[in-house]
Nucleic acid binder design. Structure first.
Lengths: 121, 121, 121, 121
DNA sequence: GTGGTCTAGACCACT
DNA sequence: GTGGTCTAGACCACC
């Protein structure tokens, strides 16, 4: 796991992204129970309050839900997960496009490059 | 400038990447003189020795060259710069592909997604 | 061993030469493990960083290779060692020629002299 | 001039070699007057006593001679100079042979190498 | 224990 | 002022 915290972005946002990533990559599956806030905080090397905030935000977004006495679970709403996947894929791709355009490539070149690498992979 | 140093990767490697980025994005153009090692080190908030090492490696790679007492310059070898651009674009795209495949997308989906975003952009 | 450091040439270059010499003379054989950076540094009476730089350069040249946590070893690439031997022999001979020509001998005389000494040895 | 003093060998011997070299290379010619001991000592960065000892030894060997009131001169005995030249050339060559044999070359290989380099030069 | 990295601070030659 | 080298001393990950 890459709990690799960066500067300048609030830590709880970074934690949210890592957890979303873990959900999308299948580490935590739809309906799975999460480890406790305390455990997650230790694993990430952050204060439990920070991890708590991250999870609360994820709950607000509908990605996780809480069963009062038994813990937190990944949402079983498949549309929600699909939407999440789309959002994250979109932001990865946007980041790529931004990076490559900063390097002076235009859209056509970028597309050609991506095609070439996917075919050749 | 985003001298945004991350953990777990040697700082001098990250400095190399930032400088390469600056060259490719046109901040430093072919033939341009760099700021002195000391200035760059201050700007990046690292020890001059570390910046020195980064620049020495870039010189080994042929991306910059040194005129003993007058400073460092971006190479004027256009092929070298093109090769560099290709390498970096390739590694960005590879990273994207890896991320998206970890999320369960297959190559066809990735390509369709990228196409959609580039067209619609 | 003659860790006999001279002026005016960077120490790390001199260290590289001594180590190359040690390899060619059989003190360290192909595949042999080197003493640790620290030991070599102590033996040579230099700072470990300086020895480290010398060894890193030798690694770049392909003469030694590193196994992360277990030490440094002499390359097992025999061609590389042969190439090294040729280079060093060539530079010794060139130095001889330069010295003798400064003394007013011409090429024919030098060759005759060398022949005489090798035969008579 | 390379007044490049080495450790472990007495300085006066090294000075003798440098001066012999200067004579053989034509810096000081047969019959020439030398600079004063004091000047030579300053140039070499050594104590005048040390330079004095070097010159006294060279005088004992017959390579220089002293005219009591007017200074030191290079010998005009051409046989002496020839002998000196032979000695030094011989020791250079012997050093070469030693070095190359330490590297595992045999006499035939050394000779072939020297021939190749003299021809090709 | 190993190699590797980093900092702080210094000195050098060059021009 | 520039790049380059060197030292002293520290910390890290790996096994």
């Amino acid at each position: 796991m890459g709990w690799n915290l960066d500067a300048d972005k609030p830590i709880y946002l970074q934690l949210m992204e890592y957890i979303q990533q873990d959900i999308l990559s299948g580490r935590y599956k739809s309906g799975d129970k999460f480890p406790s806030v305390r455990e997650l905080a230790i694993e990430a090397g952050v204060n439990p309050n920070t991890m708590q905030k991250a999870l609360a935000e994820l709950e607000r977004e509908g990605i996780v839900y809480t069963m009062r006495t038994s813990g937190r679970f990944v949402t079983e709403d498949q549309d929600m997960l699909k939407k999440l996947k789309k959002e994250r894929a979109g932001s990865y791709i946007q980041e790529l496009i931004d990076n490559l355009m900063k390097m002076g490539l235009d859209k056509k070149e970028i597309l050609a490059f991506v095609e070439a690498m996917i075919e050749g992979d």
